[in-house]
């Protein structure tokens, strides 16, 4: 056990670290309103990784940004432990950000090109004046070392001298240097080559164990999400379709959208049935979403009831929730 774990307050591990309740995020475009996130509810227990998958425009990134309060929620509650994030003052929010960190997709543009990487990683410590100057420098070096960047050889270099994968390692070091409790990862490996992607995913798994992190892992790649997540939530057009433990969700999807996504995915194996387009067309506009179930316009199983009644999330097996009137296998 590390020191931090001993110091941490004694808590019930099943108690969620993050609860999102009926979260709505809307954007205004002229007189039109885009409901990017239209009422989603989920929790992440301490130490768990929740994967959030969906196609572009489904609101998965907006959800992540609302949790770290880069985007403000239109309505709904976001509870971090016992703290209601949406009600915090600016000052309190600033303090809280030390515990909730986010890593972004583009590793190169999310680092300041003019600064040395050792300074980039030490910056959060400097802002919060944690320890003496020497201690901060040491913590930053230790953190860089942990993510596989030699602080003595490479700490003095600037981001452009690093590859995409290395920049993503530096971003991870910067996010973890304050020892946050919750980490929001938004498509952090989608710009990387497969071999580098594997390095970063393995690193994230190791750091999660070591720092006892709770992670919201947002990505569009189903195989990547399965690899790192304990549970996976599927999102479509601003709403959640299904949440289940990873292996269960991939083996026995209950929502027709989840099944279609899985059927569309490609596998590096000629023996597997060739993936084919299980869905035609593209998602409708979130400005004017379909009534009832938002997926019904593309759903192979849609019936009149789907247009009239919004399917609520309901439990169909332990830990397996689905928002569908006619789930698969029911």
């Amino acid at each position: 056990m590390t020191d931090t774990a001993v110091e941490a307050e004694v808590v019930d591990t099943t108690e969620p670290l993050l609860s999102v309740e009926d979260l709505h995020v809307s954007f205004h475009k002229g007189s039109q309103t885009v409901q990017a996130v239209a009422g989603i509810t989920f929790t992440i227990p301490r130490g768990e990784t929740l994967g959030l998958v969906g196609e572009s425009g489904c609101g998965k990134s907006t959800t992540g940004r609302a949790i770290v309060q880069v985007e403000r929620a239109t309505s709904g509650r976001i509870l971090f432990g016992d703290t209601e994030l949406t009600a915090l003052s600016r000052g309190d929010l600033r303090t809280l950000r030390t515990q909730v960190q986010m890593i972004f997709q583009d590793p190169i543009s999310s680092l300041n090109p003019r600064r040395r990487v050792s300074d980039i990683v030490a910056e959060p410590l400097n802002i919060w004046k944690i320890g003496t100057k020497e201690e901060r420098k040491e913590s930053a070096s230790a953190m860089l070392d942990q993510v596989g960047i030699d602080p003595y050889l490479l700490g003095g270099r600037r981001p452009r001298e690093f590859s995409g994968g290395q920049c993503q390692r530096i971003s991870i070091a910067r996010a973890l240097v304050l020892k946050p409790k919750l980490l929001v990862c938004d498509e952090i490996v989608s710009a990387l080559d497969v071999s580098v992607q594997a390095q970063i995913l393995n690193l994230l798994e190791d750091l999660k164990q070591q720092y006892n992190l709770t992670i919201l892992f947002i990505a569009h790649d189903l195989a990547v999400v399965k690899n790192v997540s304990d549970r996976v939530a599927v999102m479509y057009l601003g709403r959640l379709c299904e949440i289940a433990p990873s292996d269960l969700l991939y083996e026995a999807p209950a929502h027709h959208y989840t099944a279609a996504l899985l059927a569309s995915a490609v596998e590096p194996d000629p023996e597997t049935a060739r993936s084919s387009a299980a869905l035609l067309g593209e998602p409708p506009s979130p400005i004017n979403p379909p009534s009832g179930c938002r997926f019904r316009t593309r759903c192979p199983r849609a019936e009149p009831r789907c247009a009239e009644e919004v399917p609520e999330m309901r439990q169909i097996a332990p830990g397996h929730q689905v928002a569908c009137h006619f789930p698969i296998g029911a």
Binding site: V194, Q197, A198, L201, D221, L222, A223, V224, K226, N227, V228, S229, D230, S246, D247, Y250, L262, A265, E267, P268, D269, T272
Partner: peptide, 8 residues
Amino acid sequence: TPRLANPS
């Protein structure tokens, strides 16, 4: 390459 067929 992460595989759909492999456990999480």
